[in-house]
């Protein structure tokens, strides 16, 4: 148990350099603007006084090291500057939109795992069969399809042609009121409020964008599951388990799959990173009011503080997810840390 705690501690320490690196890069990005950053951050409508004010608050009148210190200090207090387009603090804007994006991303990831893992396992246990070919086809298609294109295609088929899906505009049809905010996830909030009708409506809005993200995330997960499962099936312990006459289900489930699940879990971190990027595109296609749409609006409006705040928080979110996955792996896998 003590070694586990030590390992967890060491892993937490290992995250520090990447967090530091991320902060340095996003600091450089905010200062890389051609010309005077204060003019950009103050916006197009600013006069001399407000530009001076921004220069003071960003610390642009001081040395580089001191500027970086001020930047880090601001971040530590959750201060990412003001959004020019909305006039509210960037951190507040991001936090209020985060639940919409998280709900969508998690559902997409969940859908992908639910389809990809069984698909990969089946493909590995029956190499050369039709399911193996289906797996390969889906994997190739998944990496070649632009997410925004998949999304538009789904809208055309399921909204325009079949009329099964509600209009692809936002989280909830205008006929419904958003449920009282508890978690910020409309599906969960409406269930908590006991409002089944709103739940169904918000789920209906979620299905197409989540399926789009899911199709995108499916490919790497299925490929990894298949490879890991093939590796596990060729291992000595599976051979021994078979030789000892264990049932097929035990061999596949306990011996092969539980070992294959570890690399798949590691891949999920990478997939999550891709999903955060794909999320931006999907949110634009479905007019989803999440942080991705916010970032696009900010980009178009040259709202620098908002864009850099978005980039920074996505990177920190990604580090946190990777950390969580690694911690789970450390706690679950007895082999992790044995070799060092």
């Amino acid at each position: 148990m003590r070694t586990k705690i030590l390992q967890v501690g060491r892993r937490l320490l290992q995250a520090l350099p990447s967090v530091f690196g991320i902060i340095v890069i996003s600091f450089v990005l905010t200062r890389a603007l051609p010309g005077d950053p204060a003019v950009y951050f103050a916006g197009a409508m600013a006069d001399k006084v407000s530009i001076e004010q921004v220069r003071k608050s960003l610390g642009l009148d001081r040395g580089w090291v001191e500027q970086f210190g001020i930047y880090v200090d601001n971040l530590a207090h959750g201060n990412m500057g003001m959004s020019l387009s909305t006039g509210r603090p960037v951190s507040e804007e991001l936090l209020s939109r985060l639940p919409a994006s998280i709900e969508l991303t998690l559902l997409g990831l969940g859908l992908a795992v639910l389809v990809a893992v069984p698909l990969g396992v089946l493909a590995a246990t029956r190499p050369g069969s039709w399911i193996d070919h289906l797996c390969r086809l889906l994997v190739t298609a998944g990496v070649s399809l632009p997410t925004f294109f998949t999304g538009l295609f789904l809208i055309y088929v399921f909204y325009f042609l079949l009329g099964w899906a509600p209009s692809p505009l936002g989280r909830l049809d205008i006929l419904y009121l958003s449920p009282p905010q508890v978690t910020g996830f409309y599906t969960i909030d409406s269930l908590l409020a006991g409002d089944l009708e709103t739940f169904a409506a918000s789920l209906a809005q979620l299905v197409l964008p989540a399926a789009t993200l899911g199709l995108f995330a499916l490919a790497p997960i299925a490929r990894m599951t298949r490879a890991a499962m093939l590796g596990a099936l060729a291992s000595d312990y599976v051979r021994t388990a078979k030789a000892n006459g264990l049932s097929r289900a035990t061999v596949l489930g306990t011996y092969a799959f539980r070992n294959a699940a570890l690399p798949v879990l590691t891949t999920l971190g990478m997939v999550f990173s891709f999903l955060l990027g794909a999320n931006v595109l999907v949110e634009k296609v479905f007019s989803w009011p999440g942080i991705g749409s916010f970032a696009i609006e900010a980009l178009v409006a040259s709202d620098y503080a908002a864009v850099q705040g978005f980039v920074l928080s996505m990177a920190l979110l990604f580090v946190a997810v990777n950390l969580a996955i690694d911690l789970v792996l450390t706690l679950v896998d007895p082999r992790v840390g044995l070799d060092d």
Partner: peptide
């Protein structure tokens, strides 16, 4: 190695958005 790890620590498409916004559209 540290440099490339740091780049990889970003969701890459999001980083690209940030770079374009900083360098100019």
């Amino acid at each position: 190695g540290r440099l490339s790890d740091t780049i990889m620590a970003f969701p890459l498409f999001v980083l690209a958005m940030g770079i374009v916004s900083a360098l100019g559209n």
